[in-house]
């Protein structure tokens, strides 16, 4: 944990979050090997996934909440496997996509946040209360009745995060959450990630964001090529990309 994280989150990492386990996972798509024999146990509070474009990062993330099933091997969240319990697992593991435009479903901010809650069968006053609470906690209350297509890029990414947070998953997976943002907004998103009480698994090209994590995994050509402390992972990744 780094200096930018707030003291509360350091003290209260969600101890109940079940670990995410990949066991000898291979993914083939259209005859091509996307991931090859990956085994990982993801239990830390903040984990960064690094790797060049096309290395298999996004595929790895999509395995974690059952959006994708492995060709061989198994992905487990606690006792559950994604192949058989994708629906229960999606309540545990939330997913923030790289492009918020593809994640926002409803025309109005409050409706979009309510969408996931409705899918969980939550209605009425509890629904209203949770929508307001999550907007309030991210400082987005003024956007409550705004139309989603009028939001700025940074606001859209914050909305995407709010829409996942409101469902109270124990782990949040973020696919390059700061890639499409300017410096100010990417700092804001990083600050919010640092404040999360949930476990966060972040695929990113933002090396400063990676340095704020406890553990970093580097993927290249579908294989785990480094797994360990972020500082060492970042210099390994720099070398890998020919930047050292």
């Amino acid at each position: 944990m780094t200096a930018t994280a707030t003291p509360e989150s350091q003290m209260s990492p969600d101890a109940l979050a079940p670990p995410l386990v990949l066991e000898d996972v291979t993914v083939e798509r259209e005859g091509k090997l996307v991931l090859s024999h990956v085994s990982l146990e993801l239990a830390e509070h903040r984990i960064a996934i690094l790797g060049p474009n096309g290395s298999g990062k996004s595929t790895l993330l999509r395995l974690l909440n059952g959006l994708l099933s492995p060709t061989t091997g198994e992905v487990r969240v606690g006792e559950l496997t994604t192949a058989h319990h994708a629906k229960q697992i999606r309540r545990e593991v939330g997913f923030v996509f790289q492009n918020p435009d593809n994640q926002i479903v409803m025309p109005v901010v409050c409706e979009d946040i309510a969408f996931g809650l409705r899918n969980l069968g939550i209605r009425g006053t509890e629904l209203d209360a949770r929508v307001h609470a999550v907007l309030d906690s991210l400082g987005l209350e003024r956007l409550y009745d705004h139309e989603t297509h009028t939001l700025s890029g940074g606001e859209k990414q914050m909305l995407a995060l709010a829409a996942v947070l409101v469902m109270e998953p124990s782990t949040i997976v973020l696919d390059e959450p700061t890639t499409m943002l300017d410096l100010r907004n990417s700092l804001r998103v990083r600050r919010e990630i640092a404040r999360l009480s949930q476990r966060a698994i972040v695929a990113t090209h933002d090396l400063e964001l990676a340095l704020e994590c406890e553990r970093a995994v580097v993927i290249d050509a579908g294989q785990v090529v480094f797994d360990g402390a972020p500082a060492a992972a970042v210099s390994f990744h720099r070398e890998l990309c020919g930047a050292a």
């Binding site: 997913f95 435009d101 593809n102 994640q103 479903v105 996931g116």
Partner: peptide, 16 residues
């Protein structure tokens, strides 16, 4: 293309 990802995003938000 965006439709494909939107469908994923909807499923990942527990749409049954």
């Amino acid at each position: 293309q965006s439709a494909q990802e939107v469908a994923l995003a909807i499923d990942s938000r527990c749409y049954d």
